[in-house]
Write a protein that binds this DNA or RNA. Structure first.
Lengths: 256, 256
DNA sequence: CGGTCCCTTGATATTCATCAATATCAGTGG
DNA sequence: CCACTGATATTGATGAATATCAAGGGACCG
């Protein structure tokens, strides 16, 4: 069950009608490489809902799997619940990204997806997508590519959590967000962190306090400028360096 | 490039000829849900090589992507190299599992795959698999399921690395291996760890020494019995408990 | 049997989590 | 508009978990 049914007030006709063919995210999303009639057919099966407000779910953990969701605008976090009841965030997702892929196997969503801000998603019924993929080979290929990309991204995150220090983790996240904002036509140097410090810590496997201290330290070092949720990356080269520097000589960063 | 070309000595006709239809791993592997003529067609495109010996690669990091590989017997580790040159193991893979899925997106293998012991794999050319998947819907579905399962597994590992203590991590790995051996018809209580302590530590994000100490401690607590590479799980219930217990009251385990 | 690699064990160092206190922010209602 | 409330963020002090360093012991392989 999604939460969408509960909000009858806001109806944004323009967004409801927007189709893949007019969507600026085409090149990042499922339609990549698909044109003309094929794109129309894909378009036809996608439902576009009214926006979800912050805190509402795209889908809940354990929900039956019926559709994949492409994020149109806003942002979403996906998370699982561990045996002891605590939350582990598995990803932050930006427009053009597709979530729900991990549910195909078990037919249930093994993670929940919650809007971090006002967000709208495209609802892509999986049964019909599968059928269509048999008719449009390029669509099937793109679906496999997207899943492959997701596996790759998870593997990178594994390396992050397995091997990297707190500094490296935060620097990696900031640069990852930066790159993704840039791909979407936003500034790579200045953006809003839609997730809380808590979420960041959770995602990176760090305590909130550690995240907070890192923001402070990075700011003191002139690497970034933070103002609540807004952040500007002042020295991306050095952030990049921190990312890959391993455990060695971290304190030297302030000098070099 | 695989290493297979270098070993001309051993030719095991019986294994070269073994087809999916006679393979005990059918139910875990790509052929799941595929029968009769369809299975024959799948069979026809799979190449079965002579075994790789310990340390040889199924594929190297950066290799061009041409095929997926199903493990027939033995075991394999997959790993990436971080910017600073160190290795991060992303998975240990047992018979019936399919590796190489993360290469579909970029057309290059973003990780390497190395045999942990004498291992043979089935070589599944991806182009032909894709074609066949269009003709056999069940095959396409199974492929998506397998990829979805992989994403799910990675997400679980993320939780492990992000939130769990050293004890929890090792217990989780042991139980995961146990479960997978059981699915493959081996004893869940007693098996050989084909990977080194180093590999285990690397995979779990721990130092070798920590892993070693944990083995010792678990043994002292009567949870396991280790003899070099061989391990017996004496108290799986308690291991399971450690897995989920969170950060609280770890020392109580020895008493309770 | 000798060499090398891998594993184990102990002592010490470091990073980061935890605890606790304060500060800031976003709503809410007076 | 301002005081109040709860959530979120920052900052400092302390401690615990685990890495690192160093050395010895055992297994495997020619």
């Amino acid at each position: 069950m999604t939460d969408t049914g509960h909000h009858h007030k806001i109806i944004d006709i323009s967004s409801v009608k927007q189709a893949c063919s007019g969507c600026s995210l085409q090149q990042l999303c499922l339609p990549l490489g698909i044109n003309g009639d094929d794109l129309q057919r894909l378009d036809a099966l996608i439902k576009r809902h009214r926006p979800l407000t912050r805190g509402h779910h795209v889908f809940h953990l354990g929900d039956e799997f019926r559709a994949l969701y492409a994020i149109r605008c806003g942002s979403v976090k996906t998370y699982t619940i561990t045996e002891d009841g605590s939350e582990q965030i598995t990803g932050f997702h930006l427009p053009g990204e597709i979530i729900g892929l991990d549910a195909i196997n078990s037919n249930r969503h093994p993670c929940g997806a919650k809007a971090l801000e006002t967000t709208s998603v495209c609802d892509i019924p999986f049964n019909r997508l599968e059928e269509l993929a048999l008719l449009i080979p390029d669509l099937g290929r793109q679906l496999l590519r997207i899943m492959s990309r997701e596996i790759q991204a998870d593997e990178e995150l594994l390396t992050l959590l397995g091997k990297k220090s707190a500094e490296e983790r935060l620097a990696s996240l900031l640069l990852s967000l930066s790159k993704r904002f840039q791909q979407r036509g936003f500034s790579p140097r200045e953006f809003r962190l839609s997730m809380s410090r808590n979420d960041i810590g959770n995602y990176l496997g760090l305590a909130v306090e550690t995240v907070s201290r890192l923001f402070t330290r990075f700011q003191q070092q002139g690497l970034i400028e933070v103002q609540n949720k807004y952040i500007r990356l002042q020295n991306m080269e050095q952030l990049q360096e921190i990312t890959g520097l391993g455990a060695c000589g971290k304190t030297q960063l302030a000098e070099g």
